[in-house]
Simulated assay, not measured.
Amino acid sequence: MGYVIDGVEYEYDDEKFLLEPIMTEEAAKVIAAAEGIELTDEHWMVIEHLRNEYREKGHTPNFRNLVKEMDELKPGIDWKKRLYDLFPMQPARQAVRIAGLPKPFGKGGY
């Protein structure tokens, strides 16, 4: 079982993270819909940032670093709170899932 994106079914793991990255607009829309999230411009800003980090570093930032990086991109917002408003089910995980990226691994085993 998996997500159907552009007519193709892509497998995901037991936490619904894609097994291979799919960084398309359609992928984000399909996964966000499955998560019950309607994407806004702020969602897209976070998604694109995570995808860029994944492309450059091969992984995504943990929550603390994500907050710091988003503040550098768009200062003046309480990003700690805003990320939870945008991605209420653990932002550093839910945003990565919606971005179409594989499961993040980092400190604490997440």
Rank of each mutant, 00 (worst) to 15 (best):
G7N: 04
V8P: 04
V8A: 09
V8I: 09
E9K: 13
E11R: 10
Y12N: 08
D13E: 11
D13N: 14
D13L: 12
K16G: 09
F17G: 01
L19T: 07
L19Q: 03
E20V: 09
E20F: 07
P21K: 08
I22P: 02
I22D: 00
M23K: 05
M23T: 06
M23R: 04
T24Y: 12
T24D: 07
E25T: 10
E26L: 13
E26T: 15
E26F: 08
A27K: 02
A27V: 11
A28F: 05
A28G: 03
K29Q: 13
I31A: 04
A32F: 00
A33K: 10
E35F: 02
I37W: 05
T40A: 07
T40V: 10
E42F: 09
H43V: 07
W44I: 10
W44G: 03
I47A: 02
I47Y: 06
E48S: 15
E48C: 12
R51S: 00
N52R: 12
N52W: 11
R55V: 07
R55S: 06
K57T: 14
T60C: 00
T60Q: 03
P61D: 04
P61V: 03
P61F: 01
N62S: 15
F63I: 12
L66N: 01
L66G: 01
E69Y: 11
E69G: 06
E72F: 13
K74C: 11
K74E: 05
G76Y: 10
G76Q: 01
I77W: 14
D78P: 06
D78W: 15
W79V: 00
W79D: 00
